[in-house]
Nucleic acid binder design. Structure first.
Lengths: 223, 223
DNA sequence: ATTATCTATAGATCTATAGATAATGC
DNA sequence: ATTATCTATAGATCTATAGATAATGC
């Protein structure tokens, strides 16, 4: 009803520097809680408590409430992933193994995102519009960059002709598995796990005479 | 306080045939909802509605309430997986590829479990005891059988010497990725996806002269 | 007497709204 | 006047408990 609302129908999409300092702090805390525990488990009270403010005060920054805040968190997370992944992939081009390693390293710098949990548990609790926006930003942020990597490698004949989105899904799943392993009793450092995930993606686990990425300088580009 | 409660401190662990017909129906519906949407998203009301009964009536079958029901669901799910996986692995022995394919096929017969979502979103909402039981049954039901498969293949020198639990985690992650792909716009049949996941696990995605499972009869056992 | 439901409701919690308050900037 | 909080609370929902009811089996 307020004219301000009419002017900004997609306020969540504003770039970070269009947000006040306080709104950014809210997003930071909401991101940590939502990403760790999921949409339904986290109450606005939890977020406010972690910020040292009252639950009702959150409505000043996110007038449409919990779902708007969640969608804003997710869109910011995946915008960051999109930028980070595109830069990492670009910097590591054109070698496929270097690119996959760069992707794995990028995820290592970020809080875990629990991709599948988001899709299963969170999406059904959102409105149709919210679910659509979450799914779209996730695909653009993560599947998009990986799609490019695999499609380019296939164009060079280096990778079997499966659908690039499927390859992207497999690789993301492996990285999710790493995140999980790190929370368990696994005593292996992240660097070892990412190296093995990349190696598995390229060559599989069968021992034999396949090239060993960490010991052999063979490159997966056409130069 | 009732003597009946003293006699059955772990009623959730009772075998299926120790449950009444009605209690089993409750578990069936609760399993579907909890596994699809997670612990926090599903209200007891949702389960009761789906059963055509009143929310309070659920307490007759699960007097300790929501968490007990959830733990019972999870323990039944993973007991089923443990039995199904051990049988599948046994029947497909000793060839590694056959065993992995059997594992993938087994998961295809079951509702998806969203392993990572459970660990991230659901565990923190449970009591320490509930979380412990959920984690333990998940590990025994899924990691246990896969651990055996990979350890045996390593003993035969067929697989590089990574920790079998890590290999199990990678493979489970790939299968989770399949489940996710199937819910998306992917038009590939499950059989293709599982075959590719097994092939990826064994050989990776790099095109070349590695043996092709579906076209070449080479076996991964020592006979 | 036992089994399996039901109604009714207490008590907690959660989202969202209304309106007050205090500080800052014009 | 604007910004960013606060208090107070309505209304919804959720878990859990108490006790009634109806059917079945001894």
């Amino acid at each position: 009803m307020y004219p301000e609302d009419e002017r900004r129908p997609e306020a969540e999409l504003q770039p970070d520097d269009a947000l006040s300092e306080a709104a950014r702090r809210v997003l930071d805390v909401a991101e940590r809680l939502f990403m760790e525990q999921g949409y339904a488990t986290v109450a606005l009270r939890d977020i406010a408590d972690a910020l040292g403010m009252r639950q009702a005060s959150l409505y000043y920054h996110f007038p449409a409430g919990k779902e708007q805040l969640y969608v804003a968190v997710v869109e910011r997370v995946f915008a960051r992933h999109r930028a980070g992944l595109e830069a990492a992939v670009q910097a590591a081009a054109p070698d496929l193994r270097d690119q996959l390693q760069a992707v794995a390293d990028w995820f290592g710098t970020q809080p875990p995102i629990n991709f599948l949990g988001m899709m299963y548990a969170d999406l059904p609790a959102l409105s149709a519009e919210g679910a659509r926006r979450v799914a779209r930003s996730a695909f653009r942020g993560v599947f998009g960059p990986l799609h490019e990597v695999f499609a380019a490698a296939q164009a060079r004949g280096l990778v079997r002709p499966l659908h690039p989105d499927l390859l992207a899904g497999f690789f993301i799943a492996l990285l999710d598995g790493i995140t999980f392993s790190l929370t368990q009793q696994s005593h292996l450092p992240r660097a070892t796990l990412t190296r093995e995930a990349v190696r598995l993606m390229l060559y599989g686990i069968v021992s034999g005479d396949e090239p060993v990425p960490s010991e052999q300088p063979e490159r997966f580009s056409e130069d």
